[in-house]
């Protein structure tokens, strides 16, 4: 459910896709080879995920089948097909982090947020993910909170910091 009282389910959330904007993003890639992944990265940057409609536009513009474009996009872990939360928490599960207890942090966050890794909370505030390694092994375990690497191990604190930031912004 989303935060308001409208009873909208997460699956029903429709994002208005400005197809004109998608075409604009693709313009610089037209006629160039090997640009599909780049184009997908750009579109995702714009919308936060890859809306189905946008994938259709990409297929049309590049004269590829929808299956081909979706096949490439779904191959890579960095592409998402559903909207993600405002805050993205990634628990590093690299070897060094694993040996030093990243599992406990992940379970704590799952518990705290009421979602599993890979899911987004109903109010779209948080998305919880895992990442294979961010190369900060000497400081393991680490968590990436909105692109920033953190050594905070307490799930409650990680979320509290984000919530406080939100309140500050709201004020």
């Amino acid at each position: 459910m989303c935060g308001c009282a409208c009873n909208t389910k997460k699956e029903d959330v429709k994002v208005q896709v400005d197809t004109g904007r998608v075409c604009e993003l693709l313009k610089k890639y037209k006629g160039r080879r090997g640009v599909l992944v780049h184009a997908l990265q750009d579109v995702q940057k714009e919308f936060g995920f890859l809306p189905g409609e946008a994938i259709g536009v990409i297929a049309d513009e590049f004269d590829l089948s929808l299956a081909h474009v979706y096949g490439v996009a779904s191959f890579y872990a960095h592409f998402y097909f559903t909207p993600r939360g405002k805050n993205i928490i990634k628990v590093c599960t690299g070897t060094a982090c694993h040996v030093r207890g990243s599992k406990i942090i992940l379970e704590g966050l799952e518990e705290e947020l009421g979602i599993k890794a890979g899911e987004t909370t109903d109010d779209f505030e948080f998305t919880l993910e895992t990442v294979s390694c961010v190369g900060c092994c000497a400081l393991a375990p680490v968590v990436v909170v909105n692109e920033e690497v953190s050594r905070e191990k307490n799930p409650k604190k990680i979320i509290a910091i984000l919530k406080n930031k939100k309140e500050e912004n709201d004020e």
């Binding site: 780049h38 490439v72 191959f75 960095h78």
Partner: peptide, 26 residues
């Protein structure tokens, strides 16, 4: 420069080249 999109197998040279070509990195 080409930025990866999150696939470990792309470290394998033939997969890496497929990825640069804009395909699945297989």
């Amino acid at each position: 420069m080409k930025e990866g999109a999150g696939a470990f197998v792309c470290g394998e040279e033939t997969a890496l080249m497929a990825s640069i070509e804009g395909k699945r990195g297989m």
